[in-house]
Simulated assay, not measured.
Amino acid sequence: MSDDLAPALLTINGAIAEVSLNRPKSLNAINVEMAIALRDIFAQLGQNTEVRAVILRGEGRVFMAGGDLNYFRQASDKAAAADALIGPIHEAVSLLASLPQIVIACLHGAVAGAGMSLAMAADLAVAEQGTVFNMAYAKVGNSPDCSGSWSLPRIVGVRRALEIALLSDDLSAEQAMNLGLINRHVDKGQHEIEAKKLAERIAGNSPVAMANIKKLMRQSHSYSLEQQLKSEADAFASTASGEDFSEAVEAFFERRKPVFSGR
């Protein structure tokens, strides 16, 4: 792929969509054009009832090296430049988190700065051996964006999150696995295969159930026990009245694999 093409690409194959960061010559660093492209892609996916799983990946040698520092270097008004970039990329992250589909980050090479934040915003993550993670913001004299400060403490705890963000040390894929930053650590060159396997498994489940599970898990940190119990009851009752639940119950007693319609 070339940096001359669209900065982010969407391909759909049946129930699985693939979103590719496509600035390989710039190590997929986020610029305004990529931020807008991602925002528009996630908005489009949010309206697509046929897609059941999304793979987020990077073209070239890395997943993403962070924000485009050259963009800021050339800006005469860096605060205005920051607003122009952060506005659409934060919209994109919010849309990603609220997608009814499950999003799987497929990681390789460098996963740094905004790239690490974006990877953590996904629902699941797969990384190949040799992948290097780094929050990196402290290295450029700034603080996290793209929901990094929201995701990291929820995944690893506040004390460990502070260490990772303040020191900006490299983390190996093995360390990321131990910290819970990724779900799968696979051999070199196997990350895309593993991500597709996960996507296929998820796409074979009831999309209504998958969406409800995602929503319940994501809101749980902000809800009281009573609020969460109410949300669980509402979600369960709503899903129980649908065709997918009836199909799953019948398939269980008939000892066959259910076929979900998404209704």
Rank of each mutant, 00 (worst) to 15 (best):
A119G: 10
G115D: 04
V156Q: 04
A161R: 00
L179N: 05
L99Q: 02
Q129D: 15
A114W: 03
L216S: 05
S206K: 11
H108Q: 14
A161I: 01
A138V: 07
G113K: 03
W150S: 07
T131E: 02
Q101W: 06
F133N: 01
M135V: 13
V103S: 03
A176F: 04
L162H: 09
E194Y: 00
G130Q: 14
G157P: 09
S147R: 11
S206I: 11
K215V: 09
H221G: 12
V208R: 12
V208Q: 13
S147F: 09
S117V: 05
V158F: 07
L181D: 03
N183E: 11
L166G: 07
L162Q: 13
L181I: 14
A209C: 11
I213A: 14
S172V: 09
L166N: 14
H108F: 00
Q219P: 01
M116S: 01
A119Y: 00
Q175R: 11
V186G: 07
R154Q: 12
P153C: 08
M177D: 01
G130H: 13
S172K: 04
M177L: 15
F133L: 02
Q175T: 15
G204R: 04
A161Y: 02
R184E: 11
A136K: 07
A125R: 14
A195R: 03
E174W: 00
N178G: 14
G157Y: 00
R160Q: 14
N134V: 06
K188A: 15
G148S: 08
A195H: 01
V156Y: 01
G109T: 07
S147M: 12
S206P: 14
L152S: 03
I164F: 01
G204Y: 02
V103M: 06
A203M: 08
A173P: 02
A209Q: 06
K196E: 14
N142A: 15
E174C: 09
A121P: 07
G141C: 08
Y137V: 10
I102L: 13
A122P: 03
I213V: 15
S224G: 13
A121C: 12
A165V: 14
I193S: 10
A110M: 13
G115P: 06
G189Q: 09
A127Y: 03
G204W: 03
V140W: 01
M116T: 04
V208H: 00
E200Q: 15
N205I: 04
E200V: 10
R201N: 14
Y223C: 12
I182H: 02
A112V: 12
Q101D: 05
H191I: 02
H221T: 08
D123Y: 03
K139Q: 14
G180P: 02
V126T: 04
A127T: 05
S222C: 01
A165Y: 02
V111D: 01
M177C: 06
L181K: 04
A122S: 13
V111Y: 02
N212M: 12
R201I: 14
L216P: 05
V103T: 15
S151K: 10
D169G: 06
G113M: 09
I213D: 06
I155V: 15
P153N: 10
M120T: 04
V103Y: 02
S147N: 12
N142K: 12
N134K: 09
R218D: 13
N142Y: 07
Y137S: 07
P207A: 08
V186T: 06
Q219H: 10
G141L: 05
G113Y: 05
L198G: 06
I102A: 12
M217W: 00
K139C: 13
L99R: 02
G115I: 07
L166F: 08
R218V: 12
G148M: 10
R184F: 07
